[in-house]
Nucleic acid binder design. Structure first.
Length: 818
RNA sequence: GCCGGAGUGGCGGAAUGGCAGACGCGUUGGACUCAAAAUCCAAUGUCCGUAAGGGCUUGAGGGUUCGACUCCCUCCUCCGGCACCA
């Protein structure tokens, strides 16, 4: 009795008590384990996941948007009867934490766990439907030991290797970065200009998977632009590696244009090409060449400098022989040839390559046209008149037996011919480089390798894992991993010979953690394996992945690579981890991304304090579709708040008036079923804003009719529940139903009810709307014609004119052309 | 430079070949109130007109179509990706 009175009193209030309600239902969900799932082969599974957060100190409303989106999908699928896996965790290793902690004289672990507690509390206040038992914290040994284990698997297969090479060095983060982590020549985290440093690094051979990563046939709903970005990043080129001769040595060059081989007038080596050292050694002008090479090597390769950079080079004094015509052509060294791509050397065809053209002009090198543009005036191009290279199509000239061939056909023909002659080999090159995973930082997964004086590089045996990160650490900034100064860590015994050995002190890139976390969620408690096959194969792949576009290449490419590798070693069944991908926009304020430095941060805590989590969620889902950026609006928040209060009062009114039965109102019922259809379809295509709009419309209609049937309101509450779960649970219960609303099933529309008996026909004259008329549905063209032509408004526009044509679209429109 | 995406009222946005501007915000007027807040009702693209009504209107221009925000071509602006990849 007391309980009922209490509830009544609460309902008397105009404003709904969001704080009380939200707390109540969060506790209820937890106690009743509403969102805990187990694998269940009798049910269809649905795995929905948002990229897990990196725990940082300042959280703004922008961070809560993607998780709100994912939560709608999870709850919708739950109501539809799917067995829904919706987990969360924290990507908790990494440089920013180490740097932040260092600045505060804290241990990175202390700092990280503080941030995690913060985010977790926020997620809980927002009422997300996570299975909290599956929470992952990647900096825990129980997790990162498997990073090490996977590393060993890669190593066993020869896909993890150590190499000394120029690496991207960020002086602020004091570590190297993978190519993917250099944006516009700057560090992706701190925007420091990246330098090149020659260092020994560990690599994972992602290039071995280049071809398979290009195959996107298993990626169903991925945004076109993300697929394109990945494709461009992998950068596949088919071409021929042609063997030029230098005395007794071979100089292979790679070209995608073998059709232009007869136009090669010189070859160019990159400054770091291995032959350059020999040349310096043998050359008369070794001083000059050496000077040039050193200057070229020291250039920083930021975007601005590359664009402005003048092409520079120097003749070596040596010649190479073009194998197709035995022509002797000069060998140059120049700064415009990349060491890392192809063979680090090119054949230069100035007439048909703009870069070679510019270079040849500058140094007065010879040119020869080998592709003639086919023009109507039959005027041939000639070298003297060229102001730029000709890279278009044409017919081969000056090309021996290939003269007269279309260059497009010549590409294949010459390639095949070269293979037959043994002077070239058709090859595929990629822009993609192997993934550099070494980081000279403390806060990461130790690479499980030791260096033994006798045995060399030795992998730590599986049974000795994890190689634990030492707790005691002094974070100094000396350009080396801080682990190198921890004696107890570094000094160890060789697992093979038991002799003295030193541990690898670099740690792994954090992207290793995020490359398989989605697999661990399925099987959180496995201790002997990273995940067990039964679980992983029940839950994988992720049906719906949600995340920001900043990971279009980084995380999404690494994770796909990992998954393919794991498939190859028999640990997962699927080629791809994420079937569908939704890329969401940011929350911006005053036209800019929210950031502490810009001072435009809106804290979710403040909004929750004032309006509650449901209002915050509703606003973000209603203001725009998920994909574009969303402009924050204080007025918009007010609007969301007003709407929820309106629904609340409506429910209150119906619950209080005992006569909530009322008569079946056909109009309302029809509208309701239309709305069920629309909301269902809109959620399925992620148009949450229009789904909510149609519920608002329905509420507006319902509000104006009386009496209101309780069943109608119950359905509305169900439709709203994926968006604003707390208030819906409360309303559901207050209407006399048993919680939780999430044990209900999603409403289905009745197709009979949404069939309209009457439709509004638009009447156009010459394509302009002149009249409208209500007619029975399914009416024939003949009938409509008769009715329309006699209408006064229609005659006004057709009077005295001959009717040329009539277009009729059933149940929609009639257009009279005069 | 190359490759993508976007451009619609005062604002967020809706409509993917058939009533442009749903829904929300804002604004204005009204009701309630001693008053305010809250709430409710009404109006709200723009121009002409007292009105009825009509003209114009989806970045600009052209085209296809009975009919174009939607499809095609040219251009402009903004955002993103790539950066001498041979």
């Amino acid at each position: 009795m007391n309980k009922v009175n209490h509830q009544r009193r609460k309902l008397m209030e105009d404003k709904y008590p969001f704080a009380e309600i939200e707390y109540k239902w969060q506790k209820y969900w937890e106690q009743h384990k509403i969102y805990e799932v187990e694998k269940d082969s009798s049910k269809e599974k649905y795995y929905v996941l948002e990229m897990f957060p990196y725990p940082s100190a300042t959280l703004h409303v922008g961070h809560t948007r993607p998780y709100s989106i994912t939560d709608v999908i999870a709850r919708f699928k739950l109501l539809q009867g799917f067995n829904v896996l919706h987990p969360v965790g924290y990507d908790s290793f990494g440089m920013p934490a180490e740097i932040s902690a260092f600045e505060r004289s804290m241990h990175p672990a202390t700092w990280t766990y503080q941030c995690i507690d913060n985010i977790r509390a926020q997620f809980k206040r927002l009422g997300f439907s996570y299975d909290w038992r599956r929470e992952i914290i990647t900096c825990e040994p129980s997790y990162y030991r498997w990073n090490q284990w996977f590393f060993l698997k890669f190593y066993e297969k020869g896909l993890a290797y150590r190499k000394k090479t120029p690496a991207n060095w960020c002086s602020k983060c004091e570590t190297v970065l993978a190519n993917e982590q250099v944006i516009d020549g700057q560090c992706w985290r701190c925007n420091t200009k990246v330098e090149q440093k020659n260092l020994e690094q560990w690599f994972l051979s992602i290039t071995s998977y280049a071809e398979r990563l290009l195959d996107t046939s298993n990626l169903k709903e991925w945004p076109e632009r993300v697929l394109l970005m990945q494709k461009n990043w992998i950068g596949r080129s088919e071409g021929v590696e042609i063997k030029f001769k230098i005395k007794n040595e071979e100089l292979p060059v790679f070209t995608t244009r073998p059709d232009t081989i007869f136009g090669a007038t010189y070859v160019v080596l990159s400054p770091e090409h291995p032959l350059v050292n020999n040349i310096i050694h043998l050359s008369k002008s070794r001083g000059l060449i050496k000077k040039f090479v050193e200057k070229a090597k020291s250039k920083d390769m930021t975007i601005a400098t590359i664009l402005d950079m003048e092409k520079e080079g120097i003749w070596t004094g040596f010649y190479a022989v073009n194998p197709v015509n035995n022509e002797k052509i000069p060998i140059w060294v120049a700064n415009y040839v990349l060491t890392e791509y192809g063979t680090g050397a090119i054949m230069a065809v100035p007439t048909h390559d703009q870069r070679d053209f510019e270079f040849a002009k500058k140094y007065g090198l010879p040119m020869r046209i080998v592709i003639q543009k086919q023009t109507s005036d039959s005027k041939l191009q000639n070298v003297e008149e060229m102001t730029q290279s000709y890279e278009g199509e044409g017919v081969l000239v000056n090309s021996g037996q290939f003269n007269g061939l279309e260059n497009k056909q010549a590409i294949d023909k010459i390639g095949i011919w070269m293979e037959q002659q043994g002077i070239g080999e058709r090859k595929v090159y990629y822009k993609l480089r192997d993934w550099c995973i070494s980081r000279q930082r403390y806060w990461g997964t130790p690479i499980p390798i030791v260096y033994c004086e006798k045995c060399g590089i030795v992998a730590v045996p599986e049974n000795d894992l994890p190689v634990k990160l030492p707790k005691k650490i002094t974070i100094t900034r000396k350009g080396q991993s801080p682990l190198a100064y921890v004696e107890e860590f570094v000094n160890c015994t060789c697992p093979k010979c038991r002799g003295r050995a030193r541990r690898e002190t670099d740690t792994m890139d954090t992207f290793v953690c995020s490359s398989w976390y989605f697999l661990r969620y399925t099987s959180i408690n496995s201790e002997k394996v990273p995940f067990n096959l039964e679980d992983v194969n029940y839950w994988m792949p992720v049906e719906q992945y949600v995340g920001g576009v900043e990971h279009a290449i980084l995380h999404l490419l690494y994770a796909r690579f990992f998954n393919k590798f794991l498939k190859d070693i028999g640990m997962v069944n699927n080629e791809e981890p994420f079937t569908n991908l939704l890329v969401h926009g940011m929350v911006i304020k005053d036209g800019a991304k929210m950031s502490k430095s810009k001072g435009n941060v809106v804290s979710p805590d403040e909004i929750i304090e004032r309006y509650g989590a449901d209002v915050l969620r509703l606003f973000m889902l209603f203001a725009a579709p998920p994909q574009p950026d969303l402009e924050w609006s204080d007025e918009g928040i007010e609007g969301a708040n007003r709407f929820l209060n309106r629904v609340w009062r409506l429910v209150k009114q119906v619950v209080e008036s005992e006569k909530c039965g009322g008569q079946e109102n056909q109009r309302i019922l029809r509208k309701l079923h239309h709305t069920i259809k629309k909301v269902t379809e809109d959620i399925e295509r992620f148009h949450f804003n229009t789904a909510i709009a149609s519920i608002m419309e329905l509420i507006n209609t319902v509000q104006q009719s009386s009496p209101i049937r309780k069943e109608i309101l119950e359905t509305i509450v169900l439709l709203l529940s994926p968006f604003v779960p707390h208030i819906c649970e409360e309303m559901w219960e207050s209407m006399g139903n048993k919680p939780s609303i999430f044990n209900q099933s999603w409403p289905k529309y009745n197709p009979e009810l949404i069939k309209e008996e009457e439709t509004l026909i638009i009447i156009q004259v010459n394509g302009r709307v002149r009249d409208k008329m209500l007619v029975p549905s399914g009416i024939s063209e003949e009938d409509v014609r008769k009715m329309v032509l006699n209408r006064e408004k229609v005659r006004k526009w057709t009077g005295g004119k001959t009717i040329e044509n009539i277009i009729f679209i059933p149940d929609k429109l009639i257009n009279i052309v005069v």
